[in-house]
Amino acid sequence: MSNMLLEVNHVGHVYQTPQCEKEALKDVSFQIEEGEFVSLVGPSGCGKSTLLTIIAGLERPTHGEVRLDGKPVTAPTAEIGYMPQKDHLFSWRNIRSNITLGLEIQKKGPEYYRKAEEMMEKYGLRDVGSMMPDQLSGGMRQRCSLIRTLVTGPRFLLLDEAFSALDYQTRVAVSVDIHTIIRKENKTVLLVTHDISESLMLSDRVIVLSHSPGTVKRIHDLSVLKDTAPMERLDHEAYGSMIKDIWKELDIHG
């Protein structure tokens, strides 16, 4: 099992508040291979975001551990890139300096800035480099947000409901766009989402979390869809039954 990039081992988390004690996660375990695109779906309030905060290293779990490339994750690390739900581009910085924000913070050398320029060129952002974020469309902003995450050179990407702030049509277009870039850059990804069709379109595997406390209910292997492009998966014969399966497992009413 040496090619496992991310290991989540028996993670459990109990929230303490003055009013009560709430078990958010219970014995969550899964692994992600290098180069894999995995989605984590679950009903709202199932502890998805708690799990994401733990994997990101922003919070320590009460039980279990997270390992990246064999090393335990206990604090945010440059190895893990994080792409938030909204683009969160800073309105007072132009696109170029938004993209290099992480490089500034991590005090990276000029070779990283050259790489940033190359990526902007490669993904059609060179001409908008000196524009301000509010001059760009939602889709372009999301692309900038991804490039900002990628330029610091993380090995593993966490996408936190990365497209759900967009309207439906933009969401589909942007998710395919982001997926293409991630594939080109050959990154390993965990996408946290509540959108089943999004997870089926983009991923190699889908992890279904159950409701409070969050536990892994089932892991779907999408190898059937492996060689099918995201948009074409919608027409694949296996797609319909998979959506139904996951829908049932999510058990919205239970």
Binding site: A56, P76, A78, I80, Y82, P84, Q85, H88, I105, Q106
Partner: peptide, 14 residues
């Protein structure tokens, strides 16, 4: 200040 932006800064190592 937007907590999500603070979270983003933390994840960038700030």
């Amino acid at each position: 200040t937007d907590v999500e932006k603070v979270k983003l800064m933390k994840m960038l190592g700030a």
